[in-house]
Design a protein around this nucleic acid. Structure first.
Length: 920
RNA sequence: GGGCGGGUAGCUCAGUGGUAGAGCGCUGGCUUUACACGCCGGACGUCGCAGGUUCGACCCCUGUCCCGCCCA
C-alpha cells in the first residue's frame, strides 16, 4: 500500500464493481420479505450538469440509502431526470440560433423532434456525473418525465382532476413572460425589491369644463389601457369630481371617475389613481367591482397592440418614453420623482413580468391543500428541520389556484380538444378524434403544455408505475424520505404531498429532509457570472488554477469573478476525491440554511481519508503474518487500552446511529471522524505498538484482535459516508470466514446490540492520558529534546489510580518517553525543590509528580503562575456558587456534589502549585 | 406589511439551563519506520445590544439593532 491514498482510480474501480454486481438493485422478488426503504431522487433537469447542490443532495441521499441497505432494508433509490420545460426549450433554441434558425422556422413537430434528438445525444449527462459521487441508485429504473409511461400518468392525473372539477379553464389576469412568451405560475415570479424607479405624474383633463386631475404612475405606458380614474369616496378634495369623466388624451375614450375605498389611499400621492384593469392585479379587481372595460394594450411579445393607437408596435419600455414625451408635449406632464419599488421578474428569463388577461388552465388548490396540511399537522409527514413546517402551513393555508398551462412547445401536451362547431371542450385520456359534445370531427388539441412541476408532482408514484397497479408501486409506495432543497418546498414538495394524497390516498413520503443551499466560502450564491462556481468534478478529480479560470471565462464570468477566482484558488484544487467531498458536505449542519463550502475544509477531509488509509496501512502491516482476523463479535480483551478503545468505538457508533436516524449526518460523521483520528489513531494505535512488540502472546493476540475488530467495524460505520475508501481498505482486512464480498452489503454495525461500553476502562485510561499529557507539556515547555529521557517521580494516595499507572507503566513510558518512579514518600513531592534538582512539577487529579533536571526556572515560574491563575479563577467561581445558600438548597444534588468535588480538587491543585512556586 | 433563519475564537461553523467547542488559520517544537495530507505542545472568545425569569443563562422570555431568505 502506498503512503498516500489516491482516490481517483480507486473510486472508479469500486463503483463499477458495485454496479456490475447488482448491489444497487432493489428486489421485487415476491419471496423477499425484508422491510423496504425507498427514496425518489429529486430529478435533476435534463439540461443540468452537476453542481454543488446536486453533490450535496446526492451525498445525503446516498448516505441514507447505503445506511438502510446495510441495515437489511430492501432499498430502492429511484433515479430520474426532469424534462424541464422552459430550460430545455431555451437550450435547443439557442442551438438553433447558431444555425440562424428559430423554432418557428422548424415548426412545432420538427422542433420537438429536435429536442428529443438533443436529449438522446447530450441530455442527462448529469446521471453519469452522479455516479462519480458514488450514488447507489437503481439505475435500470431511471425515469424521464417525458417517458411514455410518465405521459400516461400525467394524462391520467389531468383527466381525473378535470373530471372531479379540480382542473378548469378561466380567463383572468396572469403573469406573462414576454421573453419566453408564456404564462407563469405565481411561484415562478420573483419580486425584486428596492428597485429605484420613477414616479411620473400627469394630468387627465375633465371632459366638461377645464379642470384636471393629476395621477401618479411608475408605468406611464399603461395609461393607454386606462378605463377609469379612482378617488376615495370620502375625499373632500375631490367631491366635485363625483360622477364626472375625464378625456383620454391619445385615444378617443371618455374615462369615468369612480369611487373606490379599497383601491385608493387618499394619503398616497395625489389621492387619485389611474385604473388599468388589464395590466395590474389591483386594478383588475377594481375593474371587476365596477364593471370596467378591460383593454389589453400589449401583444404577447410585449410590444403595443392596436389599442396603443399611435404607439402601436413600440416595445413596452420605448412606449413608456414615448408616452411621457407626448404627455409633456401636450402640457400634461406634472413632474416626476424617484420612487423605490418592487419589480416582478420571471424566475427563468429574468425579464419583467407583465400582468395580462388571458385564458388558461388552473388547478383548484384549496381542496387539495387541506389534506396536505393535515398530514403534516398530525405527524404523518415529518418535516426536518421542523421550523419549515410553519412555512409549509403558511403557504398552503393561503394557497391560490395553480396556473398549469404554459405556452411552450416542449412539455406534456394538455389533453384537451376544442371543437370548431360547438363550445364543448373535450378532455380525454386517449387522443380525441371527435368532439365529446356534438360529435363533430373538426377538433384541434390545445396548443399549450403543462407546467413542468405538474409532472414532477406525481414523481413518487408515477416512477413506480402508476396508474398501473404494479408490484413496485405496491411494495415501495409510500416512499420513506424526501430529501431536497428548501427552495423547492412549494414548487415540488407541497405539490407531491397534495398529488400523492389525492391519487394514492396516502402520503408520498413520511419524512421531508430539507437541506441548505451551497454557497461559496464567502456565503455568496454560486453563479457563473460571479466566477465563484465550484464544480464538484473539479474537486473530485482536481484542476489547476489555469483550468479553473479558463472554465469560468468560458462560462461568462465577469472580470471581478475571475479576479476572485485567481485570488482564492491560485493553485486550483488537488484531486480530493468524492469521499472527501462527501464528508465535507456531511459535516455541515443540516439545520443551517447556508452551506458556505470551504476548500480548506475539503482539504481537511482529504487529509482524514489519508489518515484512515495510513492507520489501516499500519493495522494491516501488523496483522500480516498473524492468524488474527477481524471478528464480527466484539472481542473481550483484558488490557486497558484495548478495553478503552472498544468502549469508545461503541459509543461513537451509538452517536453515529442516532445521527443517521435523526438526519443529523453532521453529528454522525463527526463522531466517527473524531473517534478515528483523536482516539483510534492518536491513542490506541500508539499504545498498540508497545503491546504488539511486547512478546507477551496473550497481549499480542488480544491487541491484534482489538485492532482488527475496531478497524473493520469503523470502516463499516463509515461506509455510507465514504463508500469508496472504506471498500478499498475493507477488501484488504482479514475477516471472518463467511464475510460478504463487499462492504456495501455487509451489516451496519449496531451499537445497541453489541454495546461494549466500559466506564471503568474509560476512567482509568483518562488517568493515563492525563499523565502522558502532563509529561508532554513539561517536555515541550522546557524544551527537553525527545531523545532525552525524563525521569518522573510521582505519587498518589488513590490506590486505584496507583494500580492503573503501575499497570500501564510501559505504555506511559513509551508515549511520554519517560521513566516512571513511584515515590512512596508524599512529603518529598510536597517540597519538590528540596528533594529533586531543578524539578518541574505537575498536578493531575489525585496524582502529582516531579520531573527533575529539566527546568528553566523562569519558564517554570511563568507556567506555574499561569496554571495557578487559571485554577484560582475557576476556584473563585465554584466557591462563590457554593457560598450561595440558595444554590446549595435549590440546585440538584448531583450538581452541588460535583461543585464540591471540583472545589476540593481545585484547592488541592492550588496548594500544590503554590508549594511548587514557593520552592522555586 | 407578515413570517422565518442567523449574529459564538482571525475565518467557516457546532453546541448545552450548571465554570465555552471543532476544523482551518496563527504560534513553539519534532526526519518518533502508519501518515509532514503527519506528530507533540501553546495562544486566542465579557457567545450582537439592553432588560427580565432562575440558585444559576451563551442557551428560556421581552425589547432592540444589524445580516439573509420567503410570502404578500
Amino acid at each position: 500500500m502506498p503512503k498516500q491514498y489516491s482516490p481517483t482510480d480507486s473510486e472508479a474501480r469500486w463503483y463499477e464493481f458495485w454496479e456490475t454486481s447488482g448491489y444497487f438493485a432493489a428486489s421485487e422478488d415476491p419471496e423477499d420479505h425484508r422491510p423496504t426503504y425507498t427514496l425518489a431522487i429529486p430529478p435533476p433537469n435534463v439540461t443540468g450538469s452537476l453542481h454543488m447542490g446536486h453533490a450535496c443532495r446526492t451525498t445525503f441521499e446516498d448516505v441514507l440509502c447505503r445506511h438502510k441497505r446495510m441495515q437489511g432494508y430492501n432499498t430502492l433509490w429511484v433515479p430520474g431526470i426532469d424534462h424541464a420545460g422552459i430550460a430545455t426549450q431555451v437550450v435547443v433554441e439557442r442551438q438553433l440560433k447558431k444555425e440562424g434558425l428559430t423554432r418557428h422556422d422548424l415548426g412545432r413537430e420538427k422542433f420537438i423532434e429536435r429536442v428529443w434528438q438533443w436529449k438522446e445525444e447530450s441530455g442527462g449527462r448529469i446521471l453519469q456525473q452522479l455516479r462519480k459521487m458514488g450514488a447507489s441508485c437503481d439505475w435500470p429504473r431511471t425515469k424521464f418525465t417525458m417517458d411514455p409511461d410518465m405521459v400516461r400518468a400525467v394524462r391520467e392525473a389531468f383527466v381525473q382532476l378535470h373530471e372531479e372539477g379540480l382542473i378548469y379553464r378561466d380567463t383572468r389576469l396572469v403573469n406573462w413572460d414576454v421573453e419566453s412568451r408564456t404564462v407563469l405560475s405565481d411561484l415562478e415570479v420573483e419580486q425584486e425589491e428596492n428597485v429605484e424607479g420613477t414616479m411620473f405624474d400627469f394630468a387627465y383633463r375633465l371632459a366638461d369644463g377645464d379642470g384636471e386631475v393629476v395621477v401618479s404612475t411608475t408605468r406611464p405606458e399603461t395609461m393607454l389601457g386606462d378605463t377609469a380614474v379612482a378617488i376615495h369616496p370620502d375625499d373632500e378634495r375631490y367631491r366635485h369630481l363625483h360622477g364626472k369623466y375625464v378625456r383620454h388624451p391619445f385615444v378617443d375614450r371618455m374615462i369615468p371617475v369612480i369611487l373606490d375605498a379599497e383601491l385608493v389611499d387618499p394619503e398616497f400621492g395625489t389621492g387619485v389613481v389611474k385604473v388599468t384593469p388589464a395590466h395590474d392585479p389591483n386594478d383588475f379587481a377594481t375593474g371587476k367591482r365596477h364593471g370596467l372595460e378591460e383593454i389589453n394594450i400589449f401583444n404577447l411579445d410585449g410590444t403595443l397592440n392596436e389599442n396603443g393607437g399611435t404607439f402601436q408596435g413600440l416595445e413596452r419600455f420605448e412606449a413608456r418614453k414615448a408616452v411621457e414625451n407626448e404627455l409633456a408635449n401636450l402640457g400634461l406632464a406634472r413632474g416626476s420623482k424617484k420612487h423605490m419599488m418592487t419589480l416582478p421578474r420571471s424566475h427563468r428569463s429574468g425579464t419583467i413580468v407583465e400582468p395580462m388577461i388571458s385564458t388558461q388552465w388552473f388547478v383548484k388548490m384549496k381542496p387539495l391543500a387541506a389534506p396536505a396540511i393535515k398530514a403534516v399537522e398530525d405527524g404523518t409527514i415529518q418535516i426536518l428541520p421542523p421550523e419549515w413546517s410553519k412555512t409549509y402551513f403558511h403557504w398552503l393555508r393561503n394557497i391560490q389556484d395553480w396556473c398549469i398551462s404554459r405556452q411552450l412547445w416542449w412539455g406534456h401536451p394538455i389533453p384537451a380538444w376544442y371543437c370548431d362547431d360547438c363550445d364543448h371542450v373535450t378532455v380525454s385520456r386517449e387522443d380525441a378524434t371527435a368532439c365529446g359534445g356534438c360529435g363533430g370531427t373538426s377538433i384541434r388539441q390545445d396548443d399549450d403544455v403543462l407546467d413542468t412541476w405538474f409532472s414532477s408532482g406525481l414523481w413518487p408514484f408515477s416512477t413506480l408505475g402508476w396508474p398501473e397497479k404494479t408490484l413496485a408501486l405496491e411494495r415501495f409506495y409510500p416512499t420513506a424520505d424526501m430529501e431536497t432543497g428548501y427552495d423547492i418546498l412549494f414548487f415540488w414538495v407541497a405539490r407531491m404531498v397534495m398529488m400523492g394524497l389525492h391519487f394514492m390516498g396516502e402520503v408520498p413520503f413520511t419524512r421531508v429532509l430539507l437541506a441548505g443551499l451551497v454557497t461559496d466560502e464567502r456565503g455568496e450564491k454560486m453563479s457563473k457570472v460571479k466566477g465563484n462556481v465550484v464544480d464538484p468534478l473539479d474537486v473530485i478529480y482536481g484542476a489547476t488554477g489555469e483550468e479553473l479560470i479558463a472554465k469560468a471565462e468560458q462560462a461568462g464570468a465577469k472580470k471581478s469573478g475571475i479576479k476572485y477566482l485567481r485570488a482564492t484558488y491560485p493553485d486550483g484544487f488537488a484531486a480530493y476525491g468524492a469521499d472527501a467531498l462527501r464528508m465535507t458536505l456531511l459535516s455541515y449542519s443540516p439545520q443551517s440554511r447556508r452551506i458556505a463550502l470551504s476548500m480548506k475544509r475539503i482539504e481537511g477531509y482529504r487529509n482524514f481519508a489519508n489518515k484512515l488509509w495510513n492507520a489501516s496501512r499500519y493495522a494491516l502491516m501488523r496483522l500480516t503474518g498473524s492468524s488474527t482476523k477481524a471478528s464480527q463479535e466484539c472481542p473481550q480483551p483484558n488490557a486497558l487500552a484495548n478495553r478503552w478503545v472498544l468502549s469508545r468505538l461503541y459509543q461513537a457508533l451509538d452517536v453515529a446511529s442516532t445521527g443517521l436516524d435523526a438526519y443529523r449526518l453532521d453529528e454522525a460523521s463527526g463522531a466517527l471522524y473524531h473517534f478515528v483520528w483523536d482516539e483510534f489513531c492518536d491513542w490506541f494505535l500508539e499504545v498498540s505498538k508497545p503491546a504488539l512488540d511486547s512478546g507477551d502472546p496473550a497481549l499480542v493476540q488480544e491487541t491484534e484482535a482489538t485492532l482488527a475488530h475496531a478497524l473493520e467495524t469503523v470502516l463499516r460505520a463509515l461506509h455510507p459516508m465514504m463508500p469508496h475508501i472504506t471498500e478499498e481498505i475493507w477488501q484488504r482486512v482479514p475477516k471472518w470466514a463467511d464475510a460478504p464480498p463487499s462492504i456495501m452489503i455487509s451489516r451496519f454495525p449496531s451499537a445497541l446490540v453489541d454495546a461494549k461500553v466500559d466506564r471503568q476502562a474509560e476512567r482509568d485510561f483518562e488517568v493515563v492520558q492525563a499523565f502522558v499529557g502532563s509529561a508532554r507539556t513539561i517536555r515541550a515547555e522546557h524544551d527537553v529534546p525527545k531523545s532525552e529521557p525524563m525521569k518522573i517521580h510521582w505519587h498518589t494516595d488513590d490506590e486505584g489510580k496507583r494500580a492503573v499507572l503501575e499497570a500501564e507503566r510501559s505504555t506511559i513510558e513509551t508515549l511520554a518517553r519517560c521513566e516512571m518512579c513511584f515515590e512512596a514518600d508524599a512529603a518529598k513531592l510536597d517540597d519538590a525543590a528540596a528533594h529533586f534538582d531543578n524539578a518541574a512539577v505537575f498536578v493531575n487529579p489525585g496524582v502529582r509528580a516531579a520531573v527533575p533536571g529539566v527546568i528553566d526556572t523562569e519558564k517554570e515560574r511563568d507556567r506555574l503562575q499561569r496554571d495557578l491563575k487559571k485554577v484560582e479563577k475557576e476556584l473563585g467561581v465554584v466557591e462563590k456558587k457554593l457560598g450561595n445558600p440558595s444554590f446549595v438548597e435549590r440546585a440538584p444534588e448531583a450538581v452541588v456534589d460535583k461543585s464540591k468535588r471540583d472545589a476540593s480538587e481545585l484547592r488541592e491543585k492550588r496548594q500544590r502549585l503554590e508549594a511548587a512556586l514557593n520552592s522555586l
